[in-house]
């Protein structure tokens, strides 16, 4: 099986790119692949816990937790998160925070890298 590194820089609310990226990660994991998932820029919005779910807005905490339980390795850019006031105490359990070199290191062993830029 292969390893897929996904980087997504789009916001959770205001874009559907994170929805797509999480669905793609789910499909890859279901096929037995390893997936590293990096969020940077506005994408770090994904890391905040206890976001209220409305039908009009994307809400990915539940599927993300299910994927993490299946082995999804998900990490947020710490500087991007801190710049937005997304501190560690409001970060979803299991959601890692690292500097940007983590993403680059993940690409080293990736068979494919899918990078989805920001808005």
């Amino acid at each position: 099986m292969g390893k897929l590194t996904i980087g997504c820089f789009s916001s959770l609310v205001g874009s559907m790119s994170l929805d797509f990226a999480v669905k793609l990660a789910a499909a890859a994991i279901d096929k037995g692949h390893k997936v590293d998932f990096w969020v940077s820029g506005n994408g770090t919005m994904l890391s905040i816990k206890d976001q209220r779910s409305f039908k009009d807005y994307s809400s990915l905490e539940k599927p993300l937790k299910e994927l993490m339980a299946k082995g999804l390795n998900v990490t947020a850019c710490e500087a991007c998160a801190e710049a937005r006031g997304y501190h560690k105490d409001i970060t979803m359990e299991g959601f890692k925070r690292h500097s940007m070199d983590w993403y680059l290191a993940s690409t080293f062993s990736a068979d494919r890298v899918l990078h989805i830029g920001g808005e």
């Binding site: 940077s40 820029g41 506005n42 940007m100 680059l104 920001g118």
Partner: peptide, 14 residues
Amino acid sequence: SENPKLALTHAIAS
């Protein structure tokens, strides 16, 4: 947008 600067900061992180 933030994209060009993020490209550079990620590249520098190498």
